[in-house]
């Protein structure tokens, strides 16, 4: 790992300034992604700004949403009574990610900003536009079984690996950020970017912008929810595909629905068109199959990930059935 200067501010403003002023500085929260990438030489910041002394750990209900501090640990959020009562989908998605040890370190802010697990991004001897712009995408013509089927570009076909983010995009969360030019709110769906011609940029955050919290609005999705994660072993593995489903059902009829897929795109993939098809329909397998077909419109696979064209809709149908029965 490269040498770096370590600073530990106690004020958000100092942390923001330290990173905004210095293009080689990075925030560090749990460190579970950043330290890993630094050990591998994929990133080599000259300054780490430890944000763990900032007061950003609280989970509290404010107005009509639940505010999760950016430094709240994944394990703490998943176990929080309010989270489990109001947003059980989020608890399920969090507990499906990583391992108990990692969830004890990983934070809300760090989780959504974790970088792709694309093997070409990780392999320094391979081309990768995300790691080194202009070198090409090794995965495009390479081994691309883990890669995207939606929203990819010629420059990058990597997927976003976070489970938590799939639930947050489905639940219409809002990200609160503070930066050198003040504070702003970003709808969760607009936090991550599609790769386009600038795959080196994962998100729409500006340099020095610090995530302070995520707001998850109150919703009727407290019962009929499910997070279906398909992976190559029972636990402790990234998703091949995952499906987050939240339904509001009355007398067997779907009143409202929120759907998203993970492991299929450069960002958590919200399925708004499919959601609309569900509204007013009976919560039956027949409905779910029709909706899954709508969800998959526009999908395009590569040489090794054609299986996702069947796995993704099947995971979605399974999640819908489980959620409806919950």
């Amino acid at each position: 790992m490269n040498q770096f200067q370590y600073v530990r501010p106690t004020k958000a403003q100092a942390a923001i300034e330290a990173v905004a002023k210095d293009p080689n500085a990075r925030f560090i929260a749990g460190g579970t992604n950043l330290v890993d990438l630094m050990k591998r030489g994929i990133t080599a910041p000259q300054k780490l700004v430890d944000i763990n002394r900032l007061p950003l750990k609280q989970i509290e209900h404010q107005g009509s949403s639940l505010r999760l501090g950016a430094l709240a640990l994944n394990s703490v959020v998943a176990n929080d009574t309010q989270v489990r009562e109001r947003h059980p989908l989020l608890a399920l998605a969090l507990n499906a990610g990583a391992s108990p040890q990692l969830r004890n370190m990983a934070t809300v802010g760090g989780n959504m900003l974790q970088r792709t697990r694309c093997t070409y991004f990780y392999d320094l001897s391979m081309p990768c536009n995300k790691r080194q712009p202009g070198t090409g995408c090794g995965a495009l013509e390479g081994i691309n079984r883990m890669h995207a089927i939606f929203g990819h570009s010629e420059q990058c076909i990597a997927v976003h690996p976070s489970d938590m983010s799939v639930a947050l995009v489905a639940l219409d969360a809002t990200v609160q950020v503070s930066g050198p030019r003040g504070s702003r709110s970003i709808p969760f769906a607009d936090l991550h970017r599609l790769p386009g011609t600038t795959p080196e940029r994962d998100t729409n955050l500006e340099p020095g912008e610090l995530i302070t919290a995520v707001d998850v609005p109150d919703s009727p999705f407290t019962k009929h929810v499910h997070y279906q994660k398909v992976r190559e072993r029972a636990s402790y593995a990234f998703a091949l595909v995952s499906a987050a489903v939240a339904l509001d059902i009355e007398n067997g009829i779907i009143k409202a629905a929120r759907l998203a897929l993970g492991g299929v795109a450069h960002k958590p993939w919200r399925l708004t068109a499919a959601e609309q098809v569900l509204v007013g329909q009976p919560a039956t397998e027949e409905t779910f199959r029709r909706v899954a077909a709508v969800a998959m419109q526009g999908a395009k696979a590569f040489k090794h990930n054609e299986y996702k064209l069947r796995l993704a809709p099947n995971a979605l149908i399974q999640a819908l059935k489980t959620a409806a029965a919950a």
């Binding site: 460190g31 579970t32 330290v35 890993d36 763990n52 040890q101 370190m105």
Partner: peptide
């Protein structure tokens, strides 16, 4: 590399000692 920090299990390989 699992150890307990303040009673909680974590991976010490991804933990910086300074932190």
């Amino acid at each position: 590399c699992t150890v307990l920090i303040d009673g909680q299990r974590v991976n010490s390989c991804l933990t910086l000692a300074v932190m």
